[in-house]
Amino acid sequence: MVKSVVGEENFIDMVPNRSNNYCCGGGGGFLQSGYKDARLEYGRIKDEQIQATRADYCVAACHNCHAQIHELSEHFGGHYGVVHLWSIICLSLGILGPNERTYLNDDLKTVNVFHPETEM
C-alpha cells in the first residue's frame, strides 16, 4: 500500500524487515510506564534502522508506534518525519487539507493542498 501511495521508487524498506524487524518500543504500555530513558534506549535500534534508509519520512500505522518513533526522531537527531498511514493516503489522493498536516515536514506542508484557503 505504501508503495502505491508514494511510488515504488520512493519506498525504501528498512533492514531487517517483516517478521525479522524490530519493535520500536512504543507498545506494551512502555509509553505510559514512566521508564522514559529505558524506552528511548530500547528505540535506538529502530532509530538506527530508519536513519540507515536515509528516507525523509517513516510511515507508522499505529498510534503507539507513531508517538514513539516521532520521539526517537527528535531524541536521536534524525529529524525524519513520522506520518500516519492515513495522512499519506489522503495526500496522494489530493484530499489532505491544510489543517491535517501536523506531522508533515516543511517539504510537504504546501504540496497538493486540498482547499488551501481554509488554513487556520
Binding site: S19, N20, N21, C23, F30, Y42
Partner: peptide
C-alpha cells in the same frame, strides 16, 4: 525486576 515493563512483548524472541 522492572524489566518486565520494558519488554514490549513484541514476540520477536518467539519468532527467532
Amino acid at each position: 525486576t522492572p524489566w518486565v515493563w520494558m519488554c514490549s512483548m513484541c514476540q520477536r524472541c518467539i519468532y527467532v
